[in-house]
């Protein structure tokens, strides 16, 4: 069922039969959609080629593919973090919740409040645990201490960190272990109440135990947020995701239900990759 209100700037509507190869998506609401997306790191350095992708709402979508295939680049297009790199530009469209995010009137603060991000390497601010989580709401104008405390507690509970840190909210966040720091970063991203959570290899720098906890966390959050996760780890992708996109050399090769991709991929390249023949 198609219920999206499409872009108010351009009044375009999606053409479902041309864009997506996945028929089952017709039962899903669409959260992020790209149309003929080309991405360039410079005039001569194209990194994405005509990517057409529709990411369903409140599902976990995994991007897999060999290093340098453009999966992180694609992810960073969704909250325009690529803008930080000088010389980059795109062609095509990216819609988030129906809004053209590369439209010139798009305000990045508003976009990034809506699209949270967790990075490969945990990056808590050199502040207290409380301040780390409260920072997002604060910059968006929340001053009331009681409300901030409530947000900090609820997001730390969501990210399964509350029991470990509730007695030391005022200690430096950098004193936490690597896994805890990453969960703190997830809590920090959730504190501004985003609709979409982008995760760029969130567990690649963690030990297996911490990785398992992050994966559990993703499983718990899947009903509240649209989660897009980039991962190197195919087992991880198969464990946590509902949908999987396989990318290769800047092209989106295949996008389907995860079960489908890992059992009966329709493309030869996908099969080669998941069976370990290359990559």
């Amino acid at each position: 069922m198609e219920t999206l209100l499409f872009n108010k700037h351009t009044n375009e509507t999606s053409e479902i039969e041309n864009v997506s190869p996945v028929d089952e998506l017709k039962d899903e609401q669409i959260s992020v959609e790209t149309k003929d997306l080309n991405f360039y790191y410079g005039p001569e350095a194209q990194a994405l080629f005509l990517v057409n992708l529709r990411i369903p709402k409140k599902r976990v979508t995994a991007f897999i593919g060999p290093s340098g295939c453009g999966k992180s680049t694609l992810l960073r297009c969704f909250n325009r973090m690529n803008d930080l790199i000088p010389g980059t530009f795109i062609e095509g469209k990216v819609y988030v919740e129906g809004e053209d995010i590369y439209h010139e009137e798009m305000r990045l603060e508003v976009l990034r409040k809506k699209v949270g991000m967790v990075f490969q390497k945990s990056n808590p601010f050199p502040k207290t645990i409380f301040e780390n989580v409260a920072y997002g709401p604060r910059i968006h104008g929340l001053k009331d201490r009681a409300q901030l405390e409530a947000i900090v507690e609820s997001t730390l509970r969501k990210s399964a960190l509350w029991d470990e840190v509730k007695d030391r909210l005022n200690t430096n966040a950098l004193d936490l272990s690597g896994g805890q720091q990453q969960r703190l970063c997830i809590a920090r991203a959730l504190a501004v109440d985003p609709e979409i959570l982008l995760m760029d290899e969130p567990a690649s720098a963690l030990d297996p135990r911490s990785t398992a906890r992050i994966e559990d966390l993703i499983a718990e959050l899947r009903h509240e947020y649209t989660i897009v996760i980039v991962t190197h780890n195919m087992q991880q992708a198969s464990r946590v995701s509902d949908y999987t996109a396989f990318m290769y050399e800047g092209n989106l090769i295949e996008f389907d239900r995860t079960r489908q991709i890992f059992t009966r991929p329709s493309e030869q390249q996908t099969e080669d990759y998941i069976t370990g023949r290359f990559g």
């Binding site: 909250n79 973090m81 930080l84 990045l108 603060e109 508003v110 976009l111 990034r112 409040k113 949270g116 991000m117 990075f119 390497k121 990056n123 808590p124 601010f125 050199p126 920072y135 997002g136 910059i139 968006h140 970063c185 920090r188 991203a189 501004v192």
Partner: peptide, 25 residues
């Protein structure tokens, strides 16, 4: 660290907020 700046920007902080709260301290 660039990671700290990106962390703030990814939360929706403006450039000025990032400089004030993250870069300067």
């Amino acid at each position: 660290p660039q990671a700290n700046r990106q962390g703030a920007l990814a939360l929706g902080a403006t450039k000025w907020q990032t400089i004030r709260d993250i870069v300067l301290p």
